[in-house]
Amino acid sequence: MSIIRTENLSKIYNPETVPVHALRDVSITIDEGEFTSIVGPSGSGKTTLLNMLGGLDKPTSGNVFINGTNITEMSDSTLIDFRLHNIGFVFQHYNLVPVFTARENVSFIMLLQKKSRKVMAERADKLLDEVGLGDRKDARPKEMSGGQQQRVAVARALASEPRFILADEPTANLDSASAMNLLDIMEQMNRNNGVTFIFSTHDQRVIDRARRVITMMDGAVDSDEYHNREKAATGGGGQ
């Protein structure tokens, strides 16, 4: 079942001065449970596409449907609320709140969703256990390594029980061991819980793990290939 569908998505920056075609008629469909990488050289439009899928940016033309709802027609405030309940984000620079502990960083999004304290505490603890940070719940970001911070960011993204997670270069700032560890966790979440992950990445380690790789070139989809079918067959994905 598809959770994301784009329809002739185009984005032109500076349309009246020096037009830059960041996206050209991109039409893709992403199913529930996918573990997909969007790849391509710098300037190919992969981050722009990810921003469109996350409702962070508006297309010049075309539509983005999430579970059948056209998010391009939503107002800014409706979109913010939609993101809160439907989309998880993992950023390249982790972007944790430095004054919060790991538990508070994970709980915060549930607080915005107005969940009860009990639910927040239980879910935050469970997620931190799942990403292997059960013993670092009260640590603040500056007391954690980059890999640990990014695992907190993954737990935070999962905390809101989103329909899918968008991860922009999640391993770009991590060493090999941390990157592999993070990928293991995300792959495990995908397999065991059916969480849909969509990455924008240059990282070959991520590309190697992805079961679907969408390659962007000059703002258009250059190729769309399914890999690792044997993994998909055993996982919770939709392949």
Binding site: L56, I80, G88, N95
Partner: peptide
């Protein structure tokens, strides 16, 4: 700036 961008991205509304 980056942190505020993150808060807006994950769903903290502008009034907050």
């Amino acid at each position: 700036m980056r942190e505020l961008g993150m808060l807006l991205s994950i769903g903290m509304n502008r009034i907050r």
